[in-house]
Design a protein around this nucleic acid. Sequence first.
DNA 1: TTCATTTGACCGTG
DNA 2: CACGGTCAAATGAA
Length: 306
Amino acid sequence: MSILSETLITKRKRLIGELVKGKKIGAQLQTLLKNNGSVSAEDLAVKILRSFTETLSVLSSNETSQIYGDGGDTGASACSEESEKKPARVKDRRGCYKRRRTSDSRKTVSPTKEDGYAWRKYGQKNILNTEYPRCYYRCTYKYEGCKATKQVQRIKEDPILYQTTYFDHHTCTDAMRASQIYVDSDPVESLNLLSFESKFPSNQDHPSRSMIKISSSAKEEPKQDTQSDMSDIKSSLEDSSLWQEIVPMEQKSSVSALVWDPKTRSYDHHDQEVVSSLNSCTSNSMHELDMEGINQWCDVENIHFD
DNA sequence: TTCATTTGACCGTG
DNA sequence: CACGGTCAAATGAA
């Protein structure tokens, strides 16, 4: 093995390691913000988690084992109607499938199962020579056409970590993102849409049930030391694209959000305070955030693969 | 009542 | 035939 490739591997390992760390911090932040009832800030955390998940997927994709080769279509598929060896069990089609190919899978290692997407568990299996069961998840929006699935398994050597294998891609994200802030596409216009992590597909006229909750993000007595903590984070991330996504939200005191009203069966505009999305974090658990990790995460941006 | 999870059955693949 | 992926009835939670 050449020195160059060894360096590349080292850098990549470090990069993945730091992304894992950053994702963990994002998960902590999400938990923290949930407790504070700050919807817009929580959504930021969701976006962070998604970003990390996608990045890890891309970085890890080359390491995917190709057990079944790389030809043909990917993913599991149901048996055709005509494959009926046992007519008596036509109705019960459990287990009737074709074993999936893994050529299109992406593996990630994360301290949390959370990745910002809505998953529904559909199975669990004890796998040979593994200490922990493997859990099978499909996208919540499967019936809207999203074929994304994932398998989650705790790592035997490091039970704190979960190895997640993703299959297929989310086709539901466009629908979900339609109601989310898009700072990267149009920083000005996106301010007029507040993300609520929409739980309904776009091809419906309205959400099947309201997942939107508005709560005041302003706290009466924000702690000074916490605010200084956030200033540290801000200065650490000033040059990062992540922070560039956060900053425009702070510059506005309020945004107009589209909120589904089940009574009028229409979307109404609501003003929502967002200026304190970060400043409102007052929990002591904020101090548990790994500041060193965040700074190192920023350093990762300086790594170049050449 | 609705929706999510659990769990054992089922069956294709190697 | 063993293993692993999926289904769907049963069960639990909200």
